[in-house]
């Protein structure tokens, strides 16, 4: 039976842990709110871009050269690049392990094809460098404050490699923020671009300041960048949500452990008091 001092000590450590997890949960909740706001803010641009590309595709349709944008080119796939977006820190449930496992699976599914990784987030960098994988680049400290500039560099690198023929396809793997309790590991094809649905809204068609293919030449790369940017924002929000949930259950767990320990402590304390009383009483009767 553990002594009273031991029990008190255990209770104190559990209490400390509970305080830490509670604080972490609160911090994550605040960060999550900000990250979610960033996702919402970024949406109009993405929607507008999508519809604008749709308009160009719809109204430049007769012009066959419009499909000749190098980013739309389908090739036989021999080598791929996978962008893996993971977290910077642990303590967030299966957030990191899910996406990393899926990243390994991605290469396993494509035996015979060369897969190189571009890694965002310290956890991804650590994991894949330990495995000795081919990496095209690694980025750390990019999720605390997601910058459009980072997405731009990553996407531009990917597009350059794609155009040079170094890679035939580019995919992105990240945790999509569904809601606070759910993050879905999502795999999307970035390049070659699957053109969005052509819209058909305007009667009589558009006038163009620039030839449609030139306009598409500026819009399509932006779409790739935007998708990387959105994925990064989503992943950041998902990480905070995952950490919040994990810390919430840790706090609850700590509460349960504390309750059990306190009960036990009181039993031990009462038992020792009872023994003491019995000793005194029996001592007194012996003297009579």
């Amino acid at each position: 039976m553990p002594s009273l001092i031991d029990l008190r000590r255990r209770i104190r450590t559990v209490q400390n842990t509970e305080q830490i997890t509670k604080a972490m949960k609160m911090v994550s909740a605040a960060k999550l709110r900000r990250a979610q706001q960033a996702v919402v803010n970024a949406r109009p641009y993405a929607t507008l871009l999508e519809s604008m590309i749709g308009s160009v595709l719809a109204h430049g349709g007769e012009d066959t050269s419009i499909g000749s944008n190098p980013l739309l080119e389908q090739r036989e796939c021999r080598s791929l690049r996978l962008l893996v977006l993971a977290g910077e820190k642990g303590l967030c449930g299966s957030f990191n392990s899910n996406v990393l496992k899926a990243g390994v699976q991605f290469a396993d599914d494509r035996a015979g094809q060369v897969v190189e990784y571009e890694l965002l987030g310290r956890k991804a960098v650590e994991f894949f460098s330990k495995r000795g994988q081919r990496t095209a680049g690694s980025w750390e400290q990019v999720f605390a404050h997601v910058e459009y500039g980072t997405a731009e560099v990553v996407a531009t690198n990917a597009m350059r490699s794609f155009r040079n023929g170094e890679v035939d396809e580019v995919w992105i793997l990240y945790n999509r923020f569904e809601n606070v309790l759910r993050q879905d590991t999502t795999l999307e094809k970035l390049l070659p671009i699957v053109p969005p649905q052509a819209s058909d809204r305007v009667l009589g068609g558009y006038e163009y300041e620039q030839p449609p293919e030139q306009l598409l030449g500026t819009l399509l790369p932006k779409r790739v960048v935007t998708r990387v940017h959105l994925a990064m924002l989503d992943s950041a929000a998902a990480e905070h949500a995952a950490r919040m949930t994990a810390m919430d259950s840790a706090t609850r767990n700590a509460g349960e452990v504390l309750e059990k320990l306190r009960l036990h402590l009181n039993r031990v304390r009462q038992a020792s008091i009872t023994t003491e009383i019995i000793e005194i009483v029996s001592g007194a009767t012996a003297l009579e």
Binding site: V202, G204, E207, E209, T218
Partner: peptide
Amino acid sequence: PLATGYLGVLPGHAPLLAE
């Protein structure tokens, strides 16, 4: 500010796409 110069737009402008 279009790439080709400034453009004033009033309601009822013809549909246009520009850089």
